[in-house]
Nucleic acid binder design. Sequence first.
DNA 1: GTCTATACCTGGATAGAC
DNA 2: GTCTATCCAGGTATAGAC
Lengths: 182, 182
Amino acid sequence: MSETRSAILELGEMLIRTRGYHAFSYHDISRPLAIKNAAVHYYFPTKADLGVAIIENTIAAFRQATASWQPLPTEKQFELYTRIYQDSQSKGWVCLMGALSPAYDTLPQPMQEKLHRMGQEILSWLTACLERGKAEQVFNFPESAQAKAQVVVAALLSSLLLNKVMGEGIFQSIREAVRKGV
Amino acid sequence: MSETRSAILELGEMLIRTRGYHAFSYHDISRPLAIKNAAVHYYFPTKADLGVAIIENTIAAFRQATASWQPLPTEKQFELYTRIYQDSQSKGWVCLMGALSPAYDTLPQPMQEKLHRMGQEILSWLTACLERGKAEQVFNFPESAQAKAQVVVAALLSSLLLNKVMGEGIFQSIREAVRKGV
DNA sequence: GTCTATACCTGGATAGAC
DNA sequence: GTCTATCCAGGTATAGAC
């Protein structure tokens, strides 16, 4: 994969996660890379193509990360999962789901489908992780693993959003509550 | 307040909460009301003015609602609070915080300030409600009321976002977990 | 208060040269 | 692959008539 293509994807992800899909333009990508509008269109003919590729990238990165965690203890894997959000917070980014879901109805259909798929993958990994931890008795919660996974994703997703509006304390506070809740 | 002004505010709120601030235009407001672009600008000279007024409206509605609940038992007040989100879900809307917070950095500064204010009001009402319920022993949770309020808001906010992407089950599932968690 | 008309800009996208 | 040049659509906003 070309360097330019990678750079576009990286910048595009940053822009979506700090401004949202409808508040950035190809110019916001071409300018920092010192290339022209048309060069970006060469790699991603339409904005929807770029959006889809960014979601695919995120799915691939999540798969790769979780696969690499497989040898680790369940509670460590969970810890590393929450650290993904910690890293986002420290950059002032929200997660991709948090960035795109509010305007879901306005997204091109291919992006909607990929986003749905991303949600499925994250929830099913997290459900399995919580299920395993419960069986191993390193986690302790009354709900089903599936319900717990939904609550955990929800809390972490919002913590990044609320953090932007309300200030930094709220992310750490919610993250702490999530850790104590499992 | 004029009928037209009210209708604009109502439509504007719907558009922000279903499409986001950057994905609707004055035309989306003027067309259903069968008026022209310029008429909308008469009431709200800039889009930022409209955005601010919509947030102010929401704050006022929240104050009015919670004030009217004052005679009710604490647990009933909490139940009515969660029902606000239920009502949003049934319309396919997200909450105003969920709609605006991802693109917080791109919002006009007056909107940022109002949104921050809205968050403060909701969190402080909810904190007081949970605190009171704990003292009355109708609620039971280990965290501080403040931390619990943050987790509750976060879970309900995200449940509306995830619901759009993942389907209807997830809202009810998270809402149920929230109710059991207090 | 609402209209017509329009100015001005930005953004997505494409054609064709290099 | 990247450029210049350009098209077209849409969006915010304003002036001035009614």
